[in-house]
C-alpha cells in the first residue's frame, strides 16, 4: 500500500534515541520522524560526496532502509545521527567505487558533475556562491572533499570523521587544511 508520509502529532517532540527505540520495535511512524529529521543533512552530504543528485537520493534511501533493517541491533553506543552518517558515508563510498570501476557494466557512467546542483529548473533559486562552492568541491581530491563536508557542512568532530573515513585525526586535519586552501584559491584570493 502506498501511503503518504505526513507529520504524526506526538512523535515530533521526541528525541532521536527514543524514536530509534520505538522504530526498532517496528514503529514505522517513529522511523518516519527520524527520516524527516535527518534526510536534509544526509542528502546534502550525499550530494556533496557523489556530485549527482539522483545518486545521492539513492544513497540516502538505501542508507535509511539499511538502518531500518539494522535498528534492532543498534545499541545506542553512538548517537542515531552519527550512526546514520556512518551508514550513508559507507553507502556513498560503495557507490563511488562501483561507478568508477573499469569493469562496471553500467550503461551510463557519469562523471562527477561540477554543477550537480545547478539543474536547469533549480538554477534560479540557487545562490551563485553555492554553485561556485559546489564546483570547487567537485575539483577536490575525494578524501579531502569528504573531510571538508563532514567538518564544515555537517559539523562532526574530528574523531568521528577519522572513524568514518578510516583514517587518523591528523590525516583528517591535514586533508581539511588542503581542502580549505584549494577552496579558498578557487573561490577568492587573499585580500
Amino acid at each position: 500500500m502506498i501511503e503518504r508520509t505526513a507529520s504524526p502529532r506526538l512523535e515530533c517532540d521526541l528525541p532521536d534515541g527514543l524514536l530509534a527505540v520505538r522504530a526498532a520495535e517496528g514503529d514505522e511512524d517513529s522511523f518516519a520522524v527520524l527520516v524527516r529529521r535527518h534526510s536534509r543533512s544526509l542528502l546534502t552530504l550525499a550530494c556533496c560526496m557523489l556530485g549527482n543528485p539522483q545518486d545521492a537520493e539513492d544513497a540516502v534511501q538505501d542508507a535509511f532502509v539499511s538502518a531500518w533493517r539494522r535498528l534492532p541491533e543498534y545499541r545506542h553506543s553512538a548517537e542515531f545521527r552519527t550512526w546514520m552518517y556512518r551508514i550513508t558515508v559507507n553507502r556513498c563510498l560503495t557507490m563511488r567505487r562501483r561507478r568508477l570501476s573499469p569493469l562496471s557494466l553500467n550503461t551510463v557512467v557519469e562523471p562527477v558533475a561540477g554543477d550537480a546542483w545547478s539543474q536547469p529548473d533549480r538554477s534560479a533559486e540557487r545562490d551563485a556562491a553555492t554553485v561556485a562552492l559546489t564546483r570547487a568541491l567537485a575539483e577536490l581530491d575525494a578524501g579531502q572533499r569528504i573531510c571538508w563536508i563532514l567538518r564544515e557542512v555537517q559539523g562532526l568532530p574530528y574523531r568521528e570523521i577519522a572513524h568514518m573515513t578510516r583514517t587518523s585525526e591528523p590525516t583528517v586535519r591535514g586533508r581539511l587544511f588542503r581542502a580549505r586552501r584549494s577552496l579558498q584559491e578557487a573561490m577568492g584570493p587573499w585580500r
Partner: peptide
Amino acid sequence: LADRVMNAVR
C-alpha cells in the same frame, strides 16, 4: 525523499 524511504520500508 521521506515518502520514498517510507514506502520502501513499508
